[in-house]
């Protein structure tokens, strides 16, 4: 008989000590790779994810070029050492699905029509995974796009909500995702108020789903503030260096 893990303890705290509506600790850095046109790095809890953008650039192979817009391609990939049991480097079905889903999360935000016959390639590498990587991956990819100077209608930010041990929670980690009752990842364009990624697996009533959706959007708004800060920091560090020299 397998022991069922308690995901919420008597004090209402989760396995990592968080309260139900707490996000994991998040750190973001922009412009971390010198070769890519844009890049960013995120740590969210124990997730460590790198994103790079190349483009707009010539499409290879040529026959894939679109006459009226840029071709957007996205590759979500997990490093073999990113998970407990070594994962084969070959793209799994899950990685293929997530590559598609993340591409579709970012696409509505990008002015692709401005760059016909080019391609914009997004690479997301998960160096360490602990649940919610498609959300953190979407968030960091949006930062890389902004860093590359690719014009966007809005930033895209993502966060998951769900249910564990009967309690509505925000930002599920790996154990909560595997053992909990439901997981609802959401990507959001905060200024336009639109949802560009939405999935759910588990078992929820419509009302519970509504609550999870709203909670996930709240989480997105909080993470969006961190995105803005990380982008603005590109200016501030330079300003500080200048002021230092003037002293």
């Amino acid at each position: 008989m397998s022991e069922k893990i308690r995901l919420i303890n008597e004090d209402g705290l989760r396995v990592d000590g968080r309260r139900p509506r707490d996000l994991r600790s998040i750190k973001m850095e922009i412009g971390v790779l010198s070769n890519a046109d844009g890049s960013a790095y995120i740590e969210q809890g124990r997730n460590k994810i790198l994103a790079a953008v190349y483009g707009p650039r010539e499409v290879h192979p040529r026959h894939l070029a679109l006459p009226d817009r840029a071709l957007l391609r996205c590759r979500y990939h997990m490093a073999p050492f990113s998970v407990e049991e070594r994962k084969s480097p070959a793209p799994s079905r899950r990685e293929i699905e997530l590559s598609k889903v993340i591409k579709e999360a970012l696409e509505p935000a990008i002015f692709l029509e401005k760059f016909p016959r080019t391609s914009i390639d997004i690479f997301i590498e998960v160096l360490q995974a602990d649940g919610g990587t498609r959300c953190a991956g979407t968030t960091v990819a949006a930062l890389a796009l902004a860093d590359a100077g690719i014009p966007m209608r809005d930033l895209v930010v993502a966060c998951a909500a769900g249910k564990v041990d009967g309690v509505l929670v925000l930002d599920l980690n790996d154990i909560e995702d595997k053992e909990g009752e439901a997981d609802v990842p959401v990507a959001y364009m905060p200024n336009l108020g639109l949802i560009s990624l939405l999935q759910m697996d588990g078992s929820l009533t419509i009302e519970e789903f509504n609550q999870a959706l709203n909670l996930a959007i709240e989480g997105c708004k909080q993470i969006y503030n961190l995105q803005r800060e990380a982008l603005r920091a590109r200016y501030v560090t330079i300003k500080e260096d200048v002021e230092e020299c003037l002293r």
Partner: peptide, 11 residues
């Protein structure tokens, strides 16, 4: 609800 999947390039 057991599953939800949004698809397509819109929002």
């Amino acid at each position: 609800i057991s599953a939800i999947q949004k698809g397509g390039t819109g929002a």
